[in-house]
Design a binder for these strands. Structure first.
Lengths: 199, 199
DNA sequence: GTCTATACGCCGATAGAC
DNA sequence: GTCTATCGGCGTATAGAC
């Protein structure tokens, strides 16, 4: 689970501790149910005061998490695109990443899939205007042009593909599906791909 | 949009006003970003005090909404089951209902599909243990037994089917898909059904 | 049943010693 | 950079007149 740590890594060790503590708490209890006192003690500090030497306020902690996580995702998508030519392979790579993260960095996935970010980060870009997401739409568009994917609204194709994958992963994250995400990966990938594949 | 009103209807006119105001605010701003002051003024009251004559506290307002909405959903599922024999028809009926509600009672659907209910209603049953949901799983199990639906874990089938539908409806609700839900209904239903249908 | 007025607590945030 | 101490404010909730 230090996949988590790697993704949110920032300048100093203390900042990382605070970010990691906040991530876990936000993911499990929600942003508004998490007080700075909670974060402070989870980061082994006596008081909330010290936190303000590292972050301007509570919202900026969440904003940092948002930035780290989406930057990391965007970079991962770039790598996947570089390593694969066909849209089907690229989408498969992204699906693989999501399943892997669900098992190895569940708090990150909870942040991505479950939290309503706009509720506590109203000024950040909605997920769908995020570079990572825009690239995913481009992959789908390429797939349509290449005849791999059915000719439908790319946003709809995205909804079908990630609808299946994300919903499955949400059930893993909340324990309704009680095996590791990897167990469901092959059949779920296939179902998702078939939902948008041509023919 | 008085489909909304009908679903949350309770004892008195004033209670309905409060519930409806709260529903809209919770759905658009989130539970924690909504103060009782917000609800009071949206329900044309000068102060929060009057609210306490109708509800014990803020959480009980949300709990009332939860009960009304899930009860109503459960009853709708019962009717759909009574009017249709085949699992495919029953699932189609539920999908139809969801699309209809998205256009005619969007706040209800926002409450159902987007809010993280456990964050502010920790003592209520999780959605998946709710009567309506249990009945849906039963429909899927019947469909598997009857050979209509592929022989996979019913929870997974549920994830595939409603993954596609709910994700599509979420995009409609947040405006990313800018036509009415009904426009996407035929093709989305088909994609969802094909994701679990046998052969 | 709705109003005015007010109490109370929690939490985010700051000042300043060390 | 972390601590003690403390402030200010918002939001929930109550008391009590009308």
């Amino acid at each position: 689970m230090d996949q988590e740590k790697e993704i949110i890594q920032s300048k100093t060790e203390t900042q990382d501790e605070i970010l990691l503590a906040a991530l876990k708490l936000f993911a499990t209890k929600g942003y508004f149910n998490t007080s700075l006192t909670d974060i402070a003690e989870a980061a082994s500090m006596k008081n909330t005061a010290a936190i303000y030497h590292h972050f301007k306020n509570k919202q900026m902690i969440a904003a940092q998490l948002y930035t780290k996580i989406f930057d990391n995702l965007s970079i991962s998508v770039d790598e996947i695109r570089r390593r694969n030519q066909k849209s089907s392979e690229q989408l498969r790579g992204i699906a693989d990443l999501f399943f892997k993260l669900t098992d190895e960095a569940p708090y990150i996935m909870q942040f991505l899939l479950i939290l309503n970010l706009n509720e506590f980060l109203p000024e950040e870009k909605p997920v769908m205007e995020t570079p990572a997401f825009i690239k995913i739409i481009k992959i789908i568009q390429s797939g349509i042009k290449a005849g791999e994917i059915r000719d439908i609204d790319p946003l709809l194709a995205n909804a079908y593909f990630f609808g299946i994958i994300n919903k499955t992963l949400r059930l893993v994250l909340n324990g309704a599906l009680n095996k590791k995400a990897g167990v469901y990966q092959p059949q779920t990938w296939l179902a998702a791909w078939n939902a948008i594949a041509k023919k």
